[in-house]
Amino acid sequence: MLLPIYIYGSAVLRKESEDIAKDYPELDKFLENLWETMYEADGVGLAAPQVGRNIRIFVVDASVNADKDPSLAGFKKAFINAHIYERSGDAVPFDEGCLSLPGINERVERPSRIRIRYADENFVEHDEEFEGFAARVIQHEYDHLDGKLFIDHVSPLRRTLLKSKLAAMTKGKYKAHYPCKLVKK
């Protein structure tokens, strides 16, 4: 089932998310809906807060970049109760966008490597290192779990230049080809 993606200005996007237990109600169905929603919206990642739930879950399919980086072939993962505990490497700039901020793209610098602990969809625990594009997408989605957005990483000048677009978005003025929702409470 397609879930509406919450748009910038929705309070759920700025709240810190909580870990869940293995017996979280209908977890399999929720993950299936996250994947379906992400693919329908042409995303490479989607976090639970983006669909209105402040729980520490996100999904990533970085295989779209396998032509540039063969290590990304088949890179499709669910991250449950994710916690990044190390960031390293050079800060690498890259143009990022977000399904919760349709039509806005900005250059964001992020560390090139991360270490993260998480559980997969079967609640098997993992402790892994990722680098390059995979690390970037994971960091972007992980930020949602902490109530952060990619625009929080741009310079104050760029944020000032985005102010009118963001204000318009909070008033429902945006275009997206996928179901969206704006909830300010």
Rank of each mutant, 00 (worst) to 15 (best):
I5N: 11
Y6S: 07
Y6D: 09
Y6R: 03
Y8K: 07
S10E: 02
A11R: 10
A11N: 09
L13V: 02
K15D: 01
D19A: 13
D23R: 11
D23V: 05
D23T: 06
Y24I: 01
E26H: 01
F30K: 04
E36R: 02
T37I: 04
M38N: 03
G43C: 05
A48Q: 14
Q50L: 11
R53H: 15
N54I: 06
I57Y: 12
F58H: 02
D61L: 15
A62Y: 10
V64D: 01
A66N: 11
K68W: 12
A73I: 09
K76R: 15
K77R: 07
A78F: 00
N81L: 08
E86C: 06
R87G: 08
S88V: 09
G89K: 06
G89I: 02
D90H: 00
V92I: 13
D95T: 12
G97P: 12
L99N: 03
S100F: 08
P102W: 12
I104L: 12
R107G: 09
E109Y: 06
E109N: 11
E109F: 00
R110K: 02
P111I: 09
S112V: 05
I114Y: 13
R115M: 06
Y118T: 06
D120N: 14
E121Q: 11
N122H: 09
F123N: 12
D127G: 11
E128Y: 00
E131A: 07
F133I: 15
R136L: 11
R136I: 09
R136H: 03
R136E: 10
V137F: 01
V137Y: 03
H140P: 10
E141D: 02
D143F: 02
H144S: 06
D146C: 07
F150C: 00
F150Y: 14
D152Y: 10
H153I: 01
V154M: 13
P156M: 14
P156R: 15
P156Q: 15
P156V: 08
R159A: 02
R159W: 02
T160G: 11
L161N: 05
L162T: 04
K163N: 13
K163G: 14
S164T: 15
K165G: 08
K165A: 03
A167C: 09
A168P: 06
A168D: 12
K171Y: 04
Y174I: 02
Y174W: 07
H177T: 04
H177R: 13
Y178E: 04
C180E: 09
K184G: 11
K184N: 08
K185P: 01
